[in-house]
Amino acid sequence: MPSATHAPDTTATPLAEPARAELRLEAVLGVLSDPLRLHIVRKLLLESPDADRSCGWFGIDRPKSTLTHHFRALREAGVTRQQQYGLERRSRVRIEDLDARFPGLLDLVRAWQPAD
């Protein structure tokens, strides 16, 4: 008998985030001042701008609680949008909202190179 395949859960539940008009530059710059959060945002922008990505996709070797904290900080500042897919949360950068509120900011984030 063939094994049953299960389709992935595509029903996403968005998590709370500030509206575009509520985005504050000091909050966005504050969360991006953390090197790990800046790395997360750059990786999304450069490698996956049009897709929701789970924590495991980033390959960051940190405790789950630490990653949860950083992803929540990005969402609460309005930098990322998170959606719940069953037990998994996936993130993407709010490119249109950030470009509308802070033109050029994401271009700077994309172009930034970490010091060696």
Rank of each mutant, 00 (worst) to 15 (best):
M1W: 01
A4L: 13
A4T: 12
H6M: 11
P8T: 09
D9A: 11
T10M: 11
P14A: 02
A16D: 13
E17F: 04
A19V: 03
A19P: 00
A19E: 14
R20A: 13
E22V: 04
L23D: 00
L25E: 12
E26G: 01
V28A: 04
L32T: 00
S33A: 15
D34E: 12
P35H: 02
P35M: 02
L36R: 10
L36V: 15
L44V: 05
D50R: 14
A51N: 13
C55M: 14
F58W: 02
D61G: 05
R62K: 12
K64Q: 14
K64E: 14
T66W: 09
L67W: 00
T68A: 15
H69V: 03
H70L: 06
H70R: 11
H70Q: 12
R72L: 08
L74A: 01
L74P: 00
R75I: 05
E76N: 13
E76D: 15
A77Q: 04
Q83S: 08
Q84P: 08
Q84S: 15
G86D: 09
G86S: 08
L87T: 09
V93K: 02
R94C: 03
R94S: 03
I95T: 14
E96T: 14
L98M: 08
L98Q: 03
D99I: 07
F102M: 06
P103I: 07
G104W: 10
D107I: 05
L108R: 13
V109Q: 05
W112T: 07
D116L: 14
